[in-house]
Amino acid sequence: MDNDITIDYIENNLSIFKKLYDVIRVIDPITKRVLLYNGNTIVEKGSTCFNKIGRESICENCISIRALKDKKTYMKIESVDSKSYLITVLPIEVENKTLIVELIKEVTDSLFYGHSLDGEGCKVSNIISDLKLMTIRDSLTDIGNRRFIDETLPIDMQLCFKKDEPISIIMVDVDYFKMINDKFGHTTGDFVLKELAGCLKQCIRNKKDWIGRYGGEEFLVCIPGADEKAALEIAERMHECILKKKFIHNNEDIKVTASFGICSTVDKKITVEEFLNFADKKLYEAKNAGRNRIVF
């Protein structure tokens, strides 16, 4: 029986697991097809293994393939949208072929980490959310990092183009930032970046708008649905906010200005790289024209 387990045997003997798991199924890990046992024949159900957890493509970290290769049982937490799943996989032999039994349980609100079940913080789903946030947030300025920009900007562009709406981006660069670092030190430089990011956040319109740290002292502001006029108004608010703000650190009053480059488009054929390059060119026009200004 160890090497000749049939699917009906699994179904008859794993009934206890039905209370522990939402889905018990057999899959072919190579084709990713869900299988049924029909008499003496294994047949495909017609669905792919990843559909059950709301995915539209194969998981990048497929543990079923790993279980097939290593002949071992594996478990993982898979996070899709706002839900978390515990997936257990174990290899079996059926009709001289190695298949995988998958046990799937949604654990969004029922899987905890640690000894205490008090509070929401120890939910694994919350831990996963925190880890995800760490990968896309800039720890210094508490805005999106370059990875966040690279992942979010293409999506927002496609959404705007699909609705025939414009989209605008603003590149912002701190003027003479190297001089600030050289004169006052990197701690003060970090303070300036953090405070300036706060100024930018005050000036965006709603939850659709976002700001990311593009690199070093350069920031990207994305304004979905905004044409050039609306983007210019936001850039002017940001420019004024920076000019009015007092940047004081270690009793030093630091003069801070910034340059802005704006690009707006409704061109569905434009690539992300081209869009960023156009805004970057406008930014450098602002810097070459004397800095502390907006070019669009």
Rank of each mutant, 00 (worst) to 15 (best):
M157T: 03
N206I: 13
T141G: 08
H186G: 09
D190A: 12
L111A: 10
C122P: 00
I92T: 04
D118N: 14
H115L: 13
C203T: 07
L90V: 08
T152E: 10
K163I: 01
N145Q: 11
I104K: 10
S129K: 14
V107M: 01
K132E: 15
L153N: 03
S168N: 08
L90T: 14
I100L: 07
G198S: 14
D190E: 13
F148M: 11
K163M: 11
G114L: 07
S139K: 14
N96I: 00
S110Q: 08
E195N: 14
T141D: 01
E120K: 12
T108M: 05
D118V: 13
I136Y: 09
G114I: 04
T88A: 12
F184W: 15
Q202K: 14
F191V: 10
F191D: 02
L193N: 09
K183H: 13
G189S: 09
K194P: 04
T108A: 07
K178F: 11
R137A: 04
E195T: 14
Q158P: 00
K132G: 10
R137H: 11
L90M: 12
I180F: 03
R137W: 02
L111T: 01
Y176R: 15
D173M: 12
E95A: 09
V172Y: 06
C199A: 10
A197M: 05
E95Y: 12
E102R: 02
G121R: 13
F184H: 15
K178A: 06
T135L: 14
